[in-house]
Amino acid sequence: MAARIEHLVTSGTFSLDGGTWDVDNNVWIVGDDAECVVIDAAHDAAAILAAVGDRALRAILLTHAHDDHIDAVAALQAATGAPAYLNDGDRMLWDAVYPEKGPDAGLDDDQVIRIAGTELHVLRTPGHSPGAVCFYAPDLGTVFSGDTLFSGGPGATGRSYSDFPTIIRSITARLLTLPAETVVRTGHGDSTTVGQEAPSLDEWIARGH
Rank of each mutant, 00 (worst) to 15 (best):
I5P: 06
E6K: 12
L8V: 10
V9T: 14
T10S: 09
T10E: 04
L16G: 01
L16Y: 13
D17K: 10
G18T: 09
N25K: 14
N26P: 11
V27E: 08
I29Y: 04
G31V: 10
A34G: 11
C36Y: 06
D40Y: 11
A42C: 15
H43I: 07
H43Q: 05
A45D: 07
I48Y: 08
I48V: 11
V52L: 09
G53P: 08
D54I: 02
R55W: 10
R55Q: 12
A59W: 04
A59R: 11
L62T: 00
L62D: 04
L62H: 11
D67N: 15
D67H: 08
D68Q: 12
A78V: 06
P83H: 08
R91P: 05
R91F: 15
W94I: 02
W94L: 01
W94V: 03
W94A: 02
A96G: 12
A96P: 07
P99E: 09
K101L: 13
P103D: 07
L107W: 02
D108L: 03
D109V: 03
D109S: 07
I115F: 06
A116P: 12
T118W: 09
R124V: 00
A132G: 10
V133E: 00
V133K: 03
F135E: 01
V143E: 00
V143M: 01
G146P: 02
L149A: 03
S151D: 15
S151K: 15
G152Q: 09
G153I: 05
A156G: 14
A156H: 15
T157M: 04
G158F: 11
F164L: 07
P165S: 02
T166S: 10
I167P: 00
I168S: 04
R169L: 05
T172Y: 09
A173Q: 14
R174W: 00
T177C: 11
L178S: 02
T182N: 00
V184S: 04
G187S: 12
H188M: 11
G189Q: 10
S191N: 13
T193W: 07
E197M: 06
E197T: 05
P199H: 09
L201C: 05
E203L: 12
W204L: 06
A206V: 05
H209D: 13
